[in-house]
């Protein structure tokens, strides 16, 4: 098991490096940089930028240098000092903006993942065991609907319903009085009270696909000869079901984290924009539009790393569950 863990960690290193490069390169793709965007917007307002001030800024951020130098400088800062560079748009170090937002994204994604699992697991089992029953058809239909509805549309509809019929806003993760307050139990409770709306919205699509995964896996397993063996031993049906096919169908289910997590993080980003949640999403889009490169790159990189770590955890969980993988 330890060897397995070490091997997985080794595999992660190139992935992490690749992620940081991709994140940085994407930000470099658009023509021009933050400075040109700034100059352009100032020019639009009829102002002119001082040449020497521009030169100084260029110097400070190494904008004139080749891309790989800029990248290495950036990485050096992160690794040695935890310094992600400065946000041009906010005039603050990126690190200051980053962590609280990232933490909330993490909480939101994790909560969505749990929600997805908790809902999809029993429904998937029910759908497989009672294949072609009315309940199965209903679950399948709802599942399809969930898959077909874009996250942001669901968020819009919910917002509309809340606004129209209950005359209240469902946006945000905190009530106004807790918005800027320091962390306390009250704030946590307030967060939890607000969290379920985005969690349900983000989780819907994932739930739908996981129900299908669970159902298909379990249907496969139910046909396996070992189920007949267990039945021939005289086990009661429900005990048999949970000890063998469900337990074995759980493995591929757990391994779906690998692709569910990226979807959830994606979903969190876009839903946060619609519901204006204080997570990475809204800040990321603004940073992208303003070419606030260090901020955008840091977000893309850390969101990806978050996902990769989540996948690693699911791999470990899978190895713990399945002796065949553990002993490979």
């Amino acid at each position: 098991m330890l060897q397995f863990l070490l091997r997985r960690l080794m595999f992660m290193i190139p992935t992490l490096i690749a992620i940081s490069i991709v994140a940085f390169v994407i930000i470099q793709l658009p023509p021009g940089d933050f400075l040109t965007t700034m100059v352009a917007s100032m020019a639009a307002q009829g102002e002119d930028m001082d040449q020497s001030a521009m030169r100084a800024l260029e110097e400070q951020y190494g904008l004139g240098q080749p891309v790989h130098i800029q990248y290495l400088k950036w990485m050096q800062g992160i690794i040695l000092r935890g310094d992600f560079g400065d946000s041009f748009g906010w005039n603050k170090p990126v690190a200051e903006l980053l962590w609280s937002r990232l933490a909330l994204t993490f909480v939101l994604s994790l909560a969505s993942l749990l929600f997805v699992w908790v809902v999809a697991f029993p429904i998937g089992i029910y759908s497989a065991v009672k294949q072609y029953s009315i309940g199965d058809y209903f679950a399948t239909f709802i599942g399809f609907l969930g898959l077909a509805t874009p996250n942001f549309l669901l968020a819009l509809i919910l917002m509309y319903i809340a606004f129209k019929f209950f005359n209240q806003s469902v946006g945000g993760l905190f009530s106004p009085e807790y918005q800027e307050a320091p962390w306390s139990w009250g704030r946590v409770a307030d967060l939890l009270a607000h969290l379920w709306v985005p969690v349900v919205i983000i989780g819907t699509a994932g739930t739908a696909s996981l129900i299908r995964v669970m159902r298909a896996n379990l249907l496969d397993e139910l046909r396996k000869p070992y189920v007949v063996t267990a039945r021939a031993k005289g086990l009661p049906e429900w005990r048999l079901l949970f000890k063998y096919p469900v337990r074995i169908a759980l493995n591929p289910f757990v391994s779906t984290v690998g692709w569910v997590l990226p979807t959830l993080v994606s979903g969190a980003a876009i839903v946060s924009i619609v519901l204006s949640l204080p997570t990475t999403g809204p800040l990321l889009i603004r940073a992208l539009l303003q070419q606030d490169m260090y901020l955008a790159a840091s977000f893309i990189m850390l969101l990806s790393i978050l996902t990769v770590i989540g996948t690693l955890v699911s791999d470990l969980l899978l190895a713990w569950l399945d002796p065949r993988i553990r002993m490979e």
């Binding site: 000869p225 070992y226 021939a232 031993k233 005289g234 000890k243 063998y244 337990r247 074995i248 002796p323």
Partner: peptide, 21 residues
């Protein structure tokens, strides 16, 4: 009666046993 009075073995010993128990 199953497993106690009458028991059964199958063709495929590979798949007739649970892989993870």
């Amino acid at each position: 009666i199953r497993g106690q009075d009458i028991s059964m073995i199958f063709q495929e010993p590979m798949t007739s046993l649970s892989p993870i128990h």
